[in-house]
Design a protein around this nucleic acid. Structure first.
Lengths: 241, 241
DNA sequence: GAGGGGGATTAGTCTAACCTAACATTTATC
DNA sequence: GATAAATGTTAGGTTAGACTAATCCCCCTC
């Protein structure tokens, strides 16, 4: 059913040395639970493309290591130490993405996969040097915020483009980063962090959304629109949900 | 006795996807045997800091994968495919070292350890971009030759500074790269690839070697001198062995 | 050609992380 | 409040790669 055999590597760059898979679990738990909410094991399994049984096993080990708190059949929550580790990995990942894009002209649809591997091998020193070399970026190429060295991250939540009402203008702040094909498509449409969009109309019943983006008119489906986070512009009141 | 538990990671960046440990074995076999000579399992064990038993087991697996040819109690030799894989890893390692040093100002005594981890995670595309970004270097910061994309490497052999006779001048071409403390010391002495040394005198019975390096006089032991490879200058005949 | 010494191998364990299949628990529904 | 559906967990197996302890094989010496 699943990806099959795969092996692991204990990381030894600096701190407490977690394995690659452990870092991936912590990152997933953080991202699903937005840092604090309790997370279902099945959701972790889905995100990491593993079986639920594997996650149950790993989660128990994470609890033994004090990285999560966990009660059977209830969810999983990061402990303070797990949270710090997750943010450290997240910082590595996003700094690497930003560096690949900024310093080595990597196309934005390919930085994610490369960073996914490098984040487990790069030392904190390397990551800090990368960050310094490109001017201490605060977001990655997809607009995701980069945690600080100290483990602080901007946790502002944004509307998705799908939630924006007709007539409203907004600035794209972030797009989801793990589907290269989708990223290429968004890039073609000029829907990238920083660009300005105006919702011209929204067809009912999950219908297409018409937009103006940098002068041109285009139309996208709600599934895609929901992957684009925006900050509303000008309009005094927040758009209706 | 040894380093204990450690886990592994299947690499999936591009080619045939070897595990980190497998890449390390192939690299070690290549470096010990200079690419073609048959290598003793114990020598591999020593270099990788593993037990001989572990190496025996792994070498059998490598043979099954067609990466080495191996007959029990005889040595191990890389097959063509193993040789290619070794050179690919060596290229990754050295390009990364050169990049860290050239683009991120990493000190030369720390690039080795960082590259040792990154070489298993970086894709060939990333390595090629790094190489391009620093002008396609042909040697790493310690003077070791970088294999080409096509898997060709300069295999010139050099004398060590310990073999150089009194009175001879030479240019340092390469120093061994895996001992950070030694590298810092060599750096302090200005014994780095490209610098010119003259052997003033050599005390007998493994005694100290007096040198002139960039104007200053200094004296080093033969153990250190043997870690420094040089190309003789001017003098018509090769120095006596 | 009979030992010995040292290098190399096998035998048997261990661990992390995964899997499938079977079972348990919680939640939702009537 | 019983039962079905959904969700989660255990049991047991696999793999790569390491380890220790015990043994084997080659070759060198006498």
């Amino acid at each position: 059913m699943k990806a099959g055999k795969r092996e692991h590597l204990r990381l030894e760059h600096g701190d407490e040395s977690l394995t690659g898979p452990v870092e991936d679990y912590l990152k997933a738990i953080y991202e699903i639970g937005r840092g604090s909410v309790s997370v279902a094991t099945n959701d972790i399994a889905q995100r990491l493309d593993l079986t639920a049984a594997s996650v149950s096993g790993m989660v128990r080990r994470l609890a033994e290591q004090g990285l999560v708190s966990y009660e059977r059949y209830k969810g999983v929550t990061l402990t303070e130490s797990g949270r710090r580790a997750a943010l450290r990995t997240l910082r590595r990942h996003r700094v690497i993405e930003a560096y690949l894009s900024g310093a080595l002209s990597y196309p934005w649809d390919r930085v994610h996969d490369e960073a996914e591997r490098l984040e487990h091998a790069a030392s904190d020193e390397l990551v800090d040097r990368m960050a310094a070399a490109i001017g201490e970026p605060v977001v990655d190429p997809h607009g995701a915020p980069i945690p600080s060295r100290e483990g602080l991250m901007d946790e502002t939540e944004y509307f998705s483009l799908a939630e924006l009402g007709a007539g409203y203008a907004a600035r794209v702040v972030r797009v989801s980063d793990d589907d290269p094909e989708m990223l290429r498509y968004l890039g073609d449409l000029a829907i990238t962090p920083g660009s300005e969009v105006v919702v011209i109309s929204k067809a009912p019943y999950e219908g297409p959304i018409s937009l103006r983006v940098s002068g041109s008119l285009l139309s996208i489906g709600p599934a895609l629109a929901s992957q684009v986070l925006v900050a509303p512009l000008i309009n005094p009141e927040a758009p209706a949900h």
